[in-house]
C-alpha cells in the first residue's frame, strides 16, 4: 500500500564515502537522481512538493565525512564542499580576501548561511550567485569527483570551468554525475578590493546585480586588476577587456573617465550577455561610481 495515494516517496541514499557515492550514482544513473547538499535552493523552487516526477532517487551527501574537511597551509585553504558558508566566514575572516567574506555574507543571513553549503552554492542550476563569481575572480580551484563504473577519478580544475562563458552551470553536462568535493581558495593579498551587490538574486533576479573588483595598487594606478559583474538571470561578465579598461584608467579618476568605463562595460555586457534591465543598469552605474570613489580615496591616501 503506498504511503500516499498518488505519491511515491523518493528513495534516499546516504553514502558515507566518495566511493559509495560513486557506486550509488552509477547504479541509479538511469533514474531521475537528485544530489542534495544543503537542499535550500532545491526546496525553494516552486512546486517542489508534492511532485510525482522529480526526486525519484535522492543522494544525500550529509554523511560523507570527507566533504566537511578543512585544510590550510600558508598558500591556500582547501574546504570540503559540505562546509557551511557560515563556517567559512567565521574561519576565514582574517585570511581570505575581504571580497569573498562580503560575498558570503551577502548570500544569506547567518541562520540561512549555517545551512547552505559552499558546494551547493557553486552548483546552482539556472542562477548565478555573486559568491560563485567572486570565487572565479579569486582564481579558485575545485576538485571534481568523476564517477566511473567501479571506480572514480578526482580532477582539479579552475572554478570557471564549472560554468560556460555566460556563467551557466555545465559541469554535469560535461561530466555526468560529477561531484564538486573540495574548493581550494588561494590566500592572497590585494591592495584594493571592492564588492557590492544589490537586489535579491533568488527572489527577483531581474533587478539584481553585483560587482567585485580586486587589484594591486600603487601610485601609478591599478596593477593587474580583475573585475567581475554578475547578472544573476543571465550570467557573469568577466573578461580581460574589462580588466584592461580598469588598468588603463587614470587615477584619481574623474567623472568623465568613470562614465567612459561604465559605457564600455555596458557595451561588453550587451554584446556578450544581452540587454539588462534599466534598474540593473542604474544599480551597476551606482556601484561603478561607488567603486571609483573608493579607489580614489585609496590612491589619494597612498
Amino acid at each position: 500500500m503506498p504511503l500516499y495515494t498518488e505519491l511515491r516517496s523518493p528513495n534516499v541514499h546516504e553514502p558515507k564515502t566518495i566511493g559509495e557515492y560513486a557506486d550509488t550514482v552509477i547504479n541509479y544513473s538511469g533514474s531521475a537522481t537528485s544530489i542534495w547538499a544543503g537542499g535550500t535552493y532545491i526546496m525553494s523552487r516552486p512546486d517542489f512538493y508534492p511532485s510525482a516526477a522529480t526526486n525519484v532517487e535522492i543522494i544525500n551527501l550529509k554523511d560523507i565525512e570527507e566533504l566537511y574537511r578543512i585544510q590550510r597551509n600558508d598558500r591556500f585553504s582547501e574546504i570540503g564542499a559540505m562546509v557551511s558558508l557560515n563556517d567559512i566566514a567565521l574561519l576565514g575572516n582574517n585570511i581570505f580576501p575581504r571580497s569573498l567574506i562580503q560575498a558570503i555574507e551577502s548570500t544569506a543571513c547567518r541562520m540561512m548561511r549555517e545551512r547552505i553549503s559552499i558546494g551547493g552554492t557553486l552548483c546552482l542550476k539556472g542562477l548565478n550567485s555573486p559568491l560563485s563569481s567572486v570565487l572565479v575572480l579569486l582564481d579558485t580551484a575545485v576538485e571534481v569527483v568523476i564517477p566511473k563504473r567501479r571506480n572514480f577519478t578526482r580532477r582539479w580544475m579552475h572554478v570557471s570551468r564549472l560554468y560556460d562563458k555566460n556563467g551557466k552551470f555545465i559541469l554535469n553536462t560535461v561530466f555526468p554525475n560529477a561531484l564538486v568535493s573540495k574548493i581550494r581558495i588561494i590566500i592572497q593579498d590585494f591592495d584594493f578590493e571592492y564588492f557590492s551587490t544589490a537586489g535579491k538574486p533568488v527572489c527577483n533576479p531581474d533587478e539584481a546585480v553585483s560587482l567585485a573588483v580586486v587589484s594591486k595598487l600603487d601610485q601609478n594606478g591599478l596593477t593587474s586588476p580583475r573585475a567581475i559583474i554578475t547578472i544573476p538571470s543571465m550570467g557573469y561578465a568577466y573578461s580581460k577587456d574589462i580588466d584592461t579598461l580598469l588598468e588603463s584608467m587614470p587615477l584619481p579618476a574623474n567623472e568623465n573617465s568613470t562614465k567612459e568605463l561604465f559605457k564600455n562595460i555596458m557595451a561588453y555586457i550587451s554584446d556578450n550577455l544581452g540587454p539588462i534591465t534599466p534598474i540593473q543598469e542604474a544599480r551597476l552605474n551606482g556601484m561603478m561610481k561607488d567603486m571609483v570613489l573608493s579607489l580614489n580615496q585609496n590612491i589619494l591616501s597612498l
Binding site: 500516499y4 495515494t5 498518488e6 505519491l7 508534492p50 511532485s51 510525482a52
Partner: peptide, 9 residues
C-alpha cells in the same frame, strides 16, 4: 481527496 499530496498532484 484523502491527503494533501494526492489532491495537489
Amino acid at each position: 481527496g484523502p491527503d494533501y499530496e494526492t489532491v495537489l498532484l
